[in-house]
């Protein structure tokens, strides 16, 4: 049996109380094996981002258990969660979240300075094809380039897991494909588990596993036997 990156049991998240309570997650049971590319699909408000936030150490569950490699995330203190994010997790966001006052190289360095076993920032930027633009500030780059810097920043720490929340949401399809390519490379060369939250169903074709969300729970988990490359995907 494959080793699990994440397991959840009865994971529940409720926002608010009483009549105004919103159930974002309704007892999710899930297993995500190590080293896979997993795509979480579902309409807005179905709970996929909430799940990502909880197992990414950004939010806390109301009930249930979420574990990362046997470590119980739901019991961790703020300090431990920070350490977890620092050591194991890389994040890529829809709006890149780069530091505008730092160059591409420095944005990556921002993470390598605090990581235990980072790669060279130049190497990380070379992986995303930005070798020539290391000294540019975010304001001097296109959206796709900024997103690739964000990916370089996420992978430079040699993360065990890479969380991507709508990584192509703000990009055109051509740029989006190149970003997905980078994610696939990271998965293949670094062996990192990659979780991608997206609206775009077609992106599921590059995943090892597709998890369909609806109404705060998993509707279906599909194992993809015929993975496509990002170039082959149309959306």
């Amino acid at each position: 049996m494959a080793e699990m990156a994440f397991t959840t049991k009865g994971l529940t998240k409720v926002y608010g109380t009483g009549r105004s309570a919103v159930h974002a997650l309704r007892g999710v049971d899930l297993e995500i094996p190590k080293g896979e590319i997993v795509v979480l699909l579902g309409p807005s408000g179905s709970g996929k981002s909430t799940l990502l936030n909880i197992i990414g150490g950004l939010d806390r569950s109301t009930d249930g258990v979420a574990a990362f490699q046997e470590q119980n995330l739901t019991d961790m203190s703020d300090r431990e969660l920070t350490k977890y994010r620092r050591q194991y997790v890389g994040f890529v966001f829809q709006f890149y979240n780069l530091m505008p006052s730092l160059t591409a190289h420095e944005n990556v360095e921002l993470v390598t300075e605090i990581a235990d076993d980072p790669m060279d920032p130049d190497e990380a930027l070379a992986m995303v094809g930005l070798k020539e633009r290391v000294d540019h500030f975010p304001a001097q780059m296109s959206g796709g380039e900024q997103q690739r810097v964000a990916i370089a920043r996420a992978v430079a720490k040699n993360p065990t897991v890479l969380f991507c929340d709508e990584p192509t949401g703000a990009l055109d399809s051509k740029t989006g494909k190149s970003v997905l390519n980078v994610l696939r490379d990271v998965n293949q060369t670094l062996g990192a588990t990659v979780l991608i939250v997206t609206h775009a169903a077609s992106q599921a074709q590059m995943a090892d596993r597709v998890i369909h969300f609806a109404d705060g729970n998993i509707r279906q988990v599909v194992k993809n036997e015929h993975k496509l490359t990002p170039e082959e995907i149309e959306w």
Binding site: R79, R86, M99, V111
Partner: peptide, 16 residues
């Protein structure tokens, strides 16, 4: 605010 939250997300401690 947003920069600081981003720093926190990528693993900076509150103090940092």
């Amino acid at each position: 605010e947003r920069d600081l939250a981003s720093l926190r997300v990528i693993g900076f401690t509150k103090g940092e």
